[in-house]
Design a protein around this nucleic acid. Structure first.
Lengths: 213, 213
DNA sequence: TGCGGATTCTATCGCGGTATAGAATGGAGC
DNA sequence: GCTCCATTCTATACCGCGATAGAATCCGCA
């Protein structure tokens, strides 16, 4: 097993992607220069091109890095046990949780992916759409089960919920007192109450979903 | 009244700002070139500099254009008559309404203002903070009046609500069936229910807010 | 027709940014 | 020590963009 250089390269490649994520997150794709990324790594600008063949390729790498796992975990929540309300709360928590140590990647994915050329933008966008669908399916299941309001517009509610969560990525870390737990708690409460069937409330909520025969 | 050239110039200046807004909205500040803006207007790139002295100045102009009135109207809603719930619904509607014909300006304000140099960014940011405060005050008034949940974290709820509304600017016009009225309706319902005091519901909500004096 | 201000033009400077070519370095294993 | 390969380097081509200078044009009005 004379493998040694390969893992080293892999590790360095991950560092490179992380550096790109950080710089893109800070200055935006067009505002960031390859020189900036090189500075973070302590190497020369031209040396970057050993790791990616263009700036756009670096952006795609950052955007794709992690979202796969992201979507997979959301799907697991959807398929898992629990009421629709439980799942919604889990989704919100799960959506926000990764920001603790991967905020850069999330921000770049959210705010810079539209700078990608068509082909890779579509590749990346597929994940976003799949994620939305999962979210929406949870809401629809809740409506079908009578947990959520029958007249709920699941599509727009989904986009609203995701948008609310995403927006927090802009001020998390800046807004004092806004920990991830607190944000997730407030948002989950807001959405759950906002979505719930009017009559069954708190008092009867414990017994689960009835109504709908 | 020998005024003729002055109004002409004014009109052209507004067109220039609108062109900049459109281009910045489409490609992002750094992704847009002054040439792109000139193309929209059908003039030469250098001719733009008759209207603004730098690209950054154009961005600031776009960002400031209209937000003053925006904040003023929100303040009017806050000070006006009605329950906190009414006001919240009005705020949501008012927040989304201008997108019909001024979507570019809003998008640029939301997504590009961070590219401004410090001085103008602070000038622009002041409006955003004032707007947030208005929104938050309405929520706090609702809590004080007993309309909204006592345990509501008004700060985070405010940021969440605004974030939800703002996010819609990204997909309004793309998402089929998502008219402004529909979006506003769904969001308002979501937020109102999410914020309301558990006991008093629908039935007693119409009688409005008393209690407080 | 000619004045004068507003507007747009041509021409160009100079910088900074992406990307390529090919040489140098450095460490693991024979 | 020598080889091989990964990694990083130096040097540079190339171009697009923002901005300036100053001339030309357009137009209302006396």
């Amino acid at each position: 097993m004379p493998r040694r250089a390969r893992p080293a390269r892999k590790r360095r490649a991950a560092e490179t992607t992380a550096a790109a994520a950080r710089v893109f997150a800070e200055r935006g794709y067009h505002g960031a220069t390859t020189q900036d990324i090189a500075d973070v790594l302590g190497i020369r600008q031209a040396s970057l091109y050993y790791y990616f063949r263009s700036k756009e390729a670096a952006l795609e790498e950052v955007c794709l890095d992690g979202v796969g796992a992201y979507v997979a975990r959301a799907a697991a929540i959807m398929r898992g046990p629990g009421s629709a309300a439980d799942k919604l709360a889990q989704l919100v928590r799960h959506h926000i949780a990764p920001w603790r140590d991967r905020a850069d990647f999330t921000r770049v994915f959210l705010r810079e992916r539209h700078n990608l050329p068509d082909a890779s933008r579509h590749r990346v966008g597929r994940y976003a759409r799949r994620y939305e669908r999962i979210f929406q399916q949870v809401l629809e299941a809740g409506v079908a089960a009578g947990e959520f309001r029958r007249d709920l517009d699941c599509r727009i509610a989904t986009l609203g919920a995701i948008g609310m969560c995403n927006a927090a990525s802009a001020w998390y870390g800046v807004e004092p007192g806004a920990t991830l737990e607190r944000i997730a708690g407030v948002f989950a409460a807001l959405l759950l109450e906002g979505v719930r069937t009017p009559m069954m409330r708190r008092t009867s909520a414990r017994s689960g979903a009835r109504r709908r025969g």
